[in-house]
């Protein structure tokens, strides 16, 4: 059913075509209104939509389709660039810790939370006799990892920093790769690691041999 309505005040002076919908009458009081709701709710569309949900529920519940990570039993892998509690790495060949006690991390630390002591040891090396990071103050800026000339201090992925003792996991030995898992020590790829083109960029020193 088309009707032509001519708007006489339309400036375009063109004809506009409108289609009128047949909506039936709006229920005016309680009972017819209730009937309308029931009729609309229980018609098929609802179950068409719900079917997908029920199907997925079935898959999840009975066919092993769960996607939830079972934290804290399960943790998601974290990007190497994430900056959490530090790791202290070892040399892969000798197993000796890499830190030479240069103190650059201590110096650069923006929140002044690295404290270390060094001494001259029996092998004429500079030994790191004390090394702690106060994680109550650390802001995980990553400067220490970046400045370290030995790739000794790096950020790890350990982001849970709740503990009973402030001192927990802040000592050198807590951060150091345990010697028995030395083989699994990963070279760090995040903040402060060597650039991918490091080999090409290096300048060779002449040697008289």
């Amino acid at each position: 059913m088309h009707e032509e309505i001519i708007h006489t005040n339309n400036t375009s002076k063109e004809k506009q075509n409108y289609t009128m919908l047949e909506l039936g009458s709006t229920p005016a009081y309680g009972w017819p209104a209730f009937k309308q709701v029931v009729k609309r709710s229980l018609s098929r569309e609802l179950f068409v939509g719900l079917w997908l949900t029920i199907k997925e529920m079935g898959k999840t519940l009975f066919l092993g389709g769960k996607h939830t990570t079972q934290y804290p039993f399960e943790k998601l892998p974290i990007s190497p660039r994430y900056r959490a509690i530090h790791n202290m790495l070892r040399l892969l060949e000798s197993g000796h810790y890499r830190c030479i006690g240069c103190g650059l991390c201590e110096k650069i630390c923006i929140s002044n939370c690295i404290a270390m002591e060094t001494r001259y040891d029996e092998n004429q090396r500079k030994e790191v006799s004390e090394y702690t990071i106060n994680f109550g103050r650390c802001i995980y800026c990553g400067y220490c990892a970046e400045v370290c000339p030995e790739l000794a201090i790096v950020h790890g992925g350990r982001y849970e920093t709740a503990s009973e003792q402030r001192a927990s996991f802040s000592l050198f030995d807590d951060m150091l790769t345990p010697i028995d898992v030395l083989k699994q020590q990963q070279e760090f790829a995040g903040f402060g690691s060597v650039s991918p083109n490091a080999d090409a960029a290096i300048k060779k020193t002449p040697l008289a041999y």
Binding site: G101, C102, E106, K107, E117, T118, R119, Y120
Partner: peptide, 9 residues
């Protein structure tokens, strides 16, 4: 004193 502290500390 050797190796006990950096001068700037």
């Amino acid at each position: 004193f050797k190796y006990t502290s950096n001068s700037w500390e």
